[in-house]
Amino acid sequence: MKQAIALTVNGDVYEVLISPNQTLLEVLRDKLGLTGTKKGCDLGACGACSVLLDGEAYLSCLMLAVDAVGKEIVTIEGLSEGGDLHPIQKSFVELGGLQCGFCTPGIVMTAKAILDEEPQPTEESVKKKMAGNLCRCTGYKKVIESVMSASGRMGGKQ
């Protein structure tokens, strides 16, 4: 049975009609048109669908949309302010932390969660926490460099 729910995404409240078996990923992409968040494996094994839920890195393909009611959801579309890229995005662009870009929204959102939790992480810590975000192109070296550089750019602050 369809039900109406309100989701808070990137600071805006959206009223949507959903079925309980729809994941947050499906609702973000298909109902709200926020296609920045990617569907990779759809089975919790690649990280492409990572979004922030109350500030933490969640896999939106393993989250029921109804369970996200009352949470602050942030997607890649909500990261830049006005026309300005977020410092994490700037680092990825400048250091070539992406190639095809498919994994990038998930990686950037995970990086945001990591840096909010630990503003000056060690490289080891970034590697461990990023391990669930698969990338077929970059070989990860530049991804890690971009996150470390973003940490510096953000002055070790949030």
């Binding site: 890195a57 969640y58 896999l59 989250m63 995970t110 926490k129 669930g132």
Partner: peptide, 9 residues
């Protein structure tokens, strides 16, 4: 367990 995301969720 799994990755950081699975440990978070």
């Amino acid at each position: 367990v799994g990755s950081y995301h699975h440990q978070t969720m």
